[in-house]
Design a protein around this nucleic acid. Structure first.
Lengths: 175, 175
DNA sequence: CACGGGTTTTAACCTAGGTTAATTCCAAAC
DNA sequence: GTTTGGAATTAACCTAGGTTAAAACCCGTG
């Protein structure tokens, strides 16, 4: 991974504690973060204070606000450490420029972005075509490892329902 | 655009009529389509025959099933011409291989995928955080040009509600 | 003009999930 | 053991949107 080399030479290492924010919704933060260890959640906060979880990020994952990095906006979500975390961060622009001049990096970016797009496409499908109940069923099948790390409250917020709603769904399903 | 050159030399031109399918859900179709002219819709069909619209594609747009092209699955949606269309198609693998060896192509792919990811991220946000009513309000603001080309029925199916539901939402909003 | 087919609206009824608040559970801390 | 605080469940009530079917509307065609 040539990108990882680039980060080792150009990036900055961060050690954060459980409960720390990497950045907050509204910040201008044009970095991409590579998760060395730990576990994070990315979440939106609506005006009336409601939390909606965009994604969970495990060791090996990457995250950054595309809208902030690439569309010149503020971060549209917050990023929070749910455990102590080690991260490597690099300016998005460095990655972007590097992919202009370095073919290997460009190709690795293509690979990463394809994987990312695929995931987002599947999530779009789930919201567009499935009920909350079906989304929950899929989640328990496909991400059983999350169950131990996150509360049911957070699963609900990730699926787009309230904790109360999810509790009902579970009960309905166990029959 | 070096990608467009590649397509002119390696791609195939298609002229389709209104009502034709480019491919159908379940097909193995590993092409990326560049829309020269016309207007199409990409939609999912559920087991019980319900249609959910993934996206509309205008001239200048590109589309293909990522799951088919990149994840080795069947097409997860169908692609239908809503007007007579001129398309250019190319095997995804050709684009992918080219981005391994040709830095310009790789960079153009990065640009395209960043734009695509951004759009999907916004759609995820809309489903996760907004009500159907809010999604409709945003759509009328941001894609007023669609209104003339598509029926309200289809707007509903794109927003994830039924036509009846959307009719109600409209009525509620006009007060 | 009348006809016919598709789109939109309306109405009546139903269901999933939201809201609020009370209750129960559980686990860590004492 | 008891206390305490967060997580999950339950219950009662409410609302948005689904479902079905009928009505109204809108065109294009003969």
């Amino acid at each position: 991974m040539k990108i990882l080399e680039l980060i080792r030479t150009n990036g900055v290492e961060l050690a954060l504690e459980k409960g720390d924010h990497v950045f907050r919704q509204g910040d201008e933060d044009k970095f991409i973060y590579f998760v060395t260890s730990g576990f994070l959640k990315a979440y939106y906060l609506s005006e009336d204070g409601k939390e909606n979880i965009k994604s969970f990020i495990e060791a090996g994952g990457r995250i950054g606000s595309l809208r902030a990095c690439y569309a010149g906006e503020k971060c549209s979500f917050s990023l929070l450490c749910m455990e102590d975390c080690k991260l490597l961060k690099i300016e998005f622009s460095k990655l972007y420029e590097a992919s202009k001049t370095d073919p290997e990096i460009a190709f690795e970016m293509v690979e990463f972005l394809l994987g990312f797009s695929l995931k987002k496409e599947i999530r779009e499908f789930e919201f567009l075509c499935l009920s909350a109940e079906q989304r929950y069923a899929r989640m328990t099948e496909e991400n059983p490892e999350f169950a131990s790390k996150i509360t049911q409250n957070e699963i609900a917020r990730y699926l787009g329902v309230t904790p109360v709603g999810l509790s009902r769904i579970k009960k309905r399903l166990e029959r």
